[in-house]
Design a protein around this nucleic acid. Structure first.
Length: 154
DNA sequence: GCCAACGTTGGC
DNA sequence: GCCAACGTTGGC
């Protein structure tokens, strides 16, 4: 049984439309610079896992589409790029500190707004809704995934 | 821009 | 290992 995840992206940087227009409708999930989120990608994610694509830090935060993890975990190339905002001078190609996963669109959805998520009793346990949560990648239970699908169909 | 919450850093 | 200071996140 595949796992499920919620992954936050700032739409200015990588929106659901960017994902839809990318080759193979797939984007590398660059820029994760938090160890807990990195460890999820490294240790727990598998190809085929479901992804709730969440728009954050924007006028209308919420779930904008469904995606899946494809391929294997690999080094995030932006950590080696001195021109990138994600450059990490403490990392090296011999011992990359930061990793990424590739994410492929399953389908765009209507925007399931943060307000609607908060109002849904079936999503009360969702980690991203908990007070003080800041992780950009969080696990989603099968029940929560089904609850999101149900809300999207409603 | 504000602010709560959390993560990271670095001196000791 | 402690902990204060600082930086970041992200909704509002």
């Amino acid at each position: 049984m595949n796992r499920h995840w919620l992954m936050k992206s700032e739409p200015d940087e990588a929106s659901i439309d960017h994902l839809a227009q990318a080759p193979q409708q797939t984007l590398p999930w660059t820029g994760v610079r938090n160890y807990q989120a990195r460890n999820f990608m490294r240790d727990a994610m598998r190809a085929g896992d479901g992804v709730l694509f969440y728009h954050s830090s924007c006028p209308q935060p919420g779930i904008a589409g469904l995606a899946q993890v494809v391929g294997d975990v690999r080094p995030d190339p932006t950590q080696f790029d001195a021109e990138s905002p994600y450059f990490d001078p403490k990392s090296s190609r011999d011992a990359p500190r930061w990793l990424l996963r590739d994410v492929q669109l399953l389908r765009k959805t209507r925007l399931l707004s943060l307000a609607e998520m908060r109002a849904a009793p079936t999503l009360a346990s969702l980690q991203v809704l908990q007070r003080g949560n800041r992780l950009s990648i969080t696990p989603v239970t099968p029940a929560e995934w089904q609850a999101v699908l149900a809300l999207l169909d409603a």
